[in-house]
């Protein structure tokens, strides 16, 4: 060992308290950094997996009322992989437990099966029954806030008429990781509820039979969102 190396070792030993503290500090910093980075990577991976497994759509378009036969044309747009038409309407919910008025958004889903895009995760209960027109799924945030359980009933004012629906299940949607009422950026599970019901019930109430007012689109691998959007707009 050279004398300079020996000198350095003795210097370090002479200030071993400081050296130990610095090592501890650096080790803590590295641990925090590694922990933070791995948590971040893990969250990104979980997010990606969740949206992929849920078949989260990449594009949405709203129209006032479009006949269903247009759907064939939409599905032929170059770059569009899956196209799903839905009826989405803002409604009011009669919810006596709440002092404030409760707003809702009701979305049509196929009876007896998951939609092709934006698949729901059923937390409790079962899927809506095609034989029961008044079955509805309620988003998990509202259900947990108000202790809503499958089998409960919920009164929804649709197009000025109140209809009573039976809660078939509690669900979570990739579209509503947190649910906020239109115009309010903050999540509000006390006064906003997302509902999924069969298309027949919604269409009948809003005069949307044979029509849709929202379309969700997923892109083919490598497709450009801009080009699909421009064709969709046309």
């Amino acid at each position: 060992m050279s004398m300079l190396d020996r000198k350095v070792l003795r210097d370090l030993w002479g200030m071993r308290g400081h050296v130990f503290t610095i090592i501890l500090l650096v080790a803590t910093g590295v641990t925090v950094l590694v922990g933070s980075v791995s948590t971040y990577v893990s969250l990104l991976s979980t997010q990606e997996t969740y949206y992929r497994d849920s078949r989260f759509a990449e594009l949405w378009a709203d129209v006032k009322r479009a006949p269903r036969y247009l759907l064939q044309g939409l599905s032929e747009i170059p770059g569009a992989a899956l196209v799903e038409a839905r009826v989405i309407k803002d409604v009011r919910v009669a919810w006596p437990q709440s002092d404030l008025s409760v707003a809702g958004r009701i979305i049509s889903i196929p009876a007896d099966e998951q939609p092709q895009l934006n698949r729901l995760h059923l937390i409790k209960g079962h899927w809506i029954d095609s034989l029961r027109r008044n079955d509805v799924l309620v988003n998990v945030g509202f259900a947990e806030t108000w202790d809503v359980a499958p089998g409960n009933f919920i009164d929804i004012i649709m197009n000025g008429r109140m209809q009573t629906f039976r809660v078939a299940g509690i669900a979570h949607s990739p579209e509503f990781v947190y649910a906020s009422r239109p115009g309010n950026p903050l999540p509000d599970d006390r006064t906003f509820v997302v509902l999924w019901a069969g298309e027949g019930a919604i269409a009948a109430a809003f005069d949307m039979e044979g029509a849709f007012n929202n379309v969700a689109v997923s892109l083919a691998p490598g497709a450009s969102a801009e080009s699909v959007m421009s064709v969709l707009d046309e």
Partner: peptide, 16 residues
């Protein structure tokens, strides 16, 4: 002189 090297080591340092 280098305070934390002995007499022998202080002299050895320059021989290196």
């Amino acid at each position: 002189l280098i305070p934390n090297l002995t007499v022998r080591e202080n002299v050895q340092l320059v021989t290196e």
